[in-house]
């Protein structure tokens, strides 16, 4: 319910922006900046470059708003624009980076660190570590797919558009990624699930007891 409402608002703002409304343009920017930044930084760990790229993308959109056709999902459209521009810029900036003008550690694209998963309190430390290493061991495209599917919640069709591959390839990549993951973490995850299950059962039981007595 609530989600649908937000979607409509975004669409409305987007149309407003296409119509030349600066306020709507500014809203769209504020709404998506953080998401675009997170994504950009995963492709290319250079904050300034990512910020500049996002800015470039928005300027271009504003200047060419008359020629932008019907956009199904503004979020997918923006992610895909930033992605294309960043990959383009990565090529252009490579020399600069080799020369060490922008000094940053070598960063593998779409890699994750253990602390990025601490959200799930129920997971054991062992599982968290295993998850992070396994995800980082996946090929770059599979890691990107996981990010797009589970963090950004995109549909396979949208992901196909963003990654510029066909939908069947997306599904194949997903199957390979999940098979690999389960192969590595299966046992540890089952152990954790047993514990979580116990916990949940106790929890439900308590709630039931409480609501019955109340």
């Amino acid at each position: 319910m609530e989600k649908a409402k937000v979607d409509i608002d975004i669409k409305k703002e987007w149309e407003g922006m296409i119509g030349g409304n600066e306020q709507a343009f500014s809203e769209i920017f504020t709404l998506f900046y953080s998401d675009l930044y997170q994504y950009g930084i995963k492709i290319f760990n250079l904050p300034d470059l990512v910020k500049d790229t996002i800015q470039d993308v928005f300027i271009r959109i504003w200047e060419r708003r008359d020629t932008i056709g019907d956009v199904q999902s503004p979020k997918a459209y923006l992610i895909s624009s930033v992605r294309r521009k960043l990959f383009h810029n990565r090529g252009a900036r490579k020399n600069e980076i080799i020369e060490g003008v922008i000094k940053r550690e070598n960063h593998e694209n779409f890699s994750f660190i253990t602390s990025e998963f601490i959200e799930i309190k129920e997971f054991s430390a062992q599982l968290k570590n295993l998850l992070a290493t396994t995800i980082n061991g996946l090929p770059e495209r599979q890691r990107e797919l996981i990010l797009l599917r589970f963090y950004y919640n995109f549909k396979y069709k949208e992901i196909a558009g963003i990654m510029e591959i066909n939908e069947q390839t997306v599904r194949n990549l997903m199957q390979r990624a999940l098979a690999k993951l389960r192969q590595k973490i299966d046992r540890t995850l089952w152990e954790d699930i047993d514990n979580i299950d116990q916990l949940l059962l106790t929890f439900f039981f308590l709630i039931k007891k409480y609501s019955n007595s109340a």
Partner: peptide, 16 residues
């Protein structure tokens, strides 16, 4: 539950 936590485990934390 296994499937749910597998997918949850794939969602990185939001960095503000």
């Amino acid at each position: 539950l296994y499937a749910r936590y597998l997918f949850l485990g794939l969602i990185p934390k939001k960095k503000a």
